[in-house]
C-alpha cells in the first residue's frame, strides 16, 4: 500500500486504483503518516520545506551533524517501485540537504540559499572534485538579519533557548 500511496502522489494511479489508495491513506494511521511524510519529502526536494518542522530537537541536531554526501544519484529504471525507493532514499540525502538549507530561514529566503550553494558546491548538483566533502548549505538569512537589523520572527530563537543569564523577565 505504501507504493500505491507514493504512486498516487505522483499522479500515476487512475480510477479504481486511485480510489483504493485514497481510501487507504485516510483510514490507516500508519499510511496517513506515510502520506504526510512523502509530502514533506516532496516539499523538501522542491526546496519548500517548512521553516518550523514538527521534529524533536534531538532529531534535528543529529540530522545537522550528518555529513552531506555529494555523490551523483544512481539511475534507477522508472518503475512503480522506484518512487517509493526514491522517496525513502531522499530522507537520508535530499531531505537533510533541504533542511540544512532552509532550517530557520523563511520561505522567501530559500531561493537565495539555493542560489548561494549553486556556483561552488551545490549538494544537488555534485562537482566531481568535491564529492564526499561535507558542506552544509549556506544560510544567508541569519547574516542578513544581523546586517539589516530586521529580525524575522521565524528565525528568532526565544530567550529560553539562549543564555539564561541574559534573559530579563519583566
Amino acid at each position: 500500500m505504501t507504493q500505491e500511496i507514493s504512486s498516487l502522489m505522483d499522479g500515476e494511479l487512475e480510477g479504481r486504483e486511485a480510489e483504493v489508495a485514497l481510501g487507504a491513506c485516510c483510514g490507516d494511521e500508519g499510511l496517513r503518516r506515510n502520506w504526510h511524510l512523502y509530502h514533506v519529502i516532496g516539499d523538501a526536494m522542491r526546496g519548500q520545506a517548512p521553516s518550523t518542522l514538527a521534529m524533536p530537537r534531538k532529531v534535528l541536531e543529529k540530522l545537522n551533524a550528518q555529513p552531506t554526501v555529494l555523490a551523483p544519484r544512481r539511475r534507477v529504471p522508472a518503475t512503480v517501485t522506484r518512487v517509493a525507493l526514491a522517496a525513502a532514499a531522499s530522507v537520508a540525502t535530499v531531505g537533510v540537504v533541504g533542511w540544512l538549507g532552509s532550517q530557520g530561514a523563511s520561505p522567501v529566503a530559500d531561493p537565495v540559499v539555493a542560489k548561494t550553494s549553486a556556483p561552488t558546491a551545490s549538494p544537488l548538483q555534485p562537482v566531481a572534485s568535491t564529492a564526499t566533502v561535507p558542506v552544509p548549505a549556506l544560510n544567508v538569512q541569519e547574516y542578513l538579519v544581523a546586517h539589516r537589523q530586521v529580525p524575522t520572527p521565524d528565525l528568532y530563537r526565544p530567550v529560553t533557548n539562549r543564555t539564561p543569564a541574559t534573559a530579563v523577565a519583566r
Binding site: 551533524a65 555529513p67 531561493p111 537565495v112 542560489k115 548561494t116 550553494s117 556556483p119 561552488t120 558546491a121 568535491t130 566533502v133 561535507p134 558542506v135 552544509p136 549556506l138 544567508v140 547574516y143 542578513l144
Partner: peptide, 18 residues
C-alpha cells in the same frame, strides 16, 4: 568548523551580496 568549509562561495540577490 563542524563541518569545516573548504571552498569559497558567493551569491547575489538584489542589492544583497554574500
Amino acid at each position: 568548523g563542524a563541518p569545516t568549509r573548504t571552498a569559497e562561495a558567493s551569491s547575489e540577490d538584489g542589492t544583497t551580496t554574500f
